[in-house]
């Protein structure tokens, strides 16, 4: 039998204004208020109750993508331990916890032109006023769905389903041709 295979996410080439982010453990969590409270305690991140907001504690983050939907992002190394731990904490509370670690790819769009680059394909207003630090949402980049999370004044975490990631990156790179060297 061959040796254990290595996890190889779709490659994303770093370009300064764009940097690949490490492979992660991800869960899509759905549930009512009881489950949200239980998960907040077990996960160690209070799940945000405001629409389109993210919260994080250490390396773990929770993005509120819908009224009962959260994307949990944690280090890849926690993959094996996190699922049973969370499942135990949730017990019989009505909920859905589905691992989607490999479904999507993450990269950072950063620097003084981050907003400008993303506006080439994202129809939302990404100005710091209407899209402050800590805001997250699903949206579109051209024809691809993305999850966008502003982690700093000039830094966004972009997640795209794995087969769309290349499309998103190539389109960003096309815009970036205009950036000053």
């Amino acid at each position: 039998m061959p040796e254990t295979l290595q996890r190889r996410p779709p490659p994303v080439e770093g370009r300064g204004w764009l940097e690949p982010l490490p492979a992660a453990t991800r869960f899509s969590f759905r549930g009512g208020s009881g489950a949200i409270e239980a998960l907040s305690r077990a996960y160690g991140v209070p799940l945000p109750t405001a629409a389109c907001r993210a919260a994080s504690a250490g390396p773990r983050a929770a993005l509120r993508l819908g009224p009962d939907e959260y994307l949990l992002i944690a280090p890849a190394a926690e993959g094996a331990s996190l699922a049973p731990m969370l499942a135990t904490a949730l017990g019989s509370l009505p909920h859905s916890l589905v691992e989607v670690s490999h479904r999507q790819v993450a990269f950072a769009v950063q620097g003084p032109y981050a907003e400008w680059l993303l506006q080439s394909g994202c129809p939302l207003d990404l100005d710091l006023g209407p899209f402050p630090i800590g805001m997250c949402t699903r949206s579109l980049f051209h024809k691809a769905e993305i999850t966008l999370w502003r982690t700093g004044p000039t830094t966004f975490r972009v997640e795209a389903w794995r087969s769309f990631a290349g499309y998103v990156v190539e389109l960003l790179a096309d815009s970036a041709l205009e950036l000053p060297a």
Binding site: L65, G66, P67, E69, R138
Partner: peptide, 10 residues
């Protein structure tokens, strides 16, 4: 009816 298909999904 509308669905916020590329947002919250509702």
């Amino acid at each position: 009816r509308w669905r916020h298909a590329r947002g919250c999904g509702r």
